[in-house]
Simulated scan of single mutants.
Amino acid sequence: MRDRTKAVRERGFTDHVLVCTNGRDSEYAACADAHGPAVYDAVREWLRDRDVFWSHVHVAETSCLGLCSADGTAVAVHPRNRWYSDVRPGEVPELLRAEFGEDASRLGVETANNRE
Rank of each mutant, 00 (worst) to 15 (best):
G66V: 05
V87L: 09
C20K: 05
A32L: 14
D103C: 06
W83I: 04
A98C: 06
A38Q: 15
G101E: 00
A7K: 15
V109S: 07
L67N: 12
S63M: 11
G72Y: 07
D41H: 09
R115P: 00
T62D: 04
G90P: 00
W54G: 11
R50N: 10
V52N: 05
T62S: 11
A30G: 10
V87K: 02
D71M: 04
S26C: 01
R11T: 14
R4I: 15
L95K: 02
S55L: 02
V19A: 04
R82S: 07
D41C: 04
D15N: 13
T62I: 04
G23F: 10
T5Y: 13
C68P: 11
R2D: 12
A98E: 15
V92F: 09
A76H: 07
A104V: 08
R115Q: 10
Y28F: 11
E10A: 13
V87Q: 03
A74G: 06
E110F: 05
V17K: 05
N113S: 13
A76G: 08
D33P: 00
R24A: 01
V92N: 09
Y84A: 09
R106T: 02
S63Q: 15
E102F: 03
W54I: 08
R9C: 03
S105G: 14
V59S: 09
L18V: 06
E61Y: 12
V87G: 06
V19E: 00
S85H: 08
W54H: 14
T5D: 13
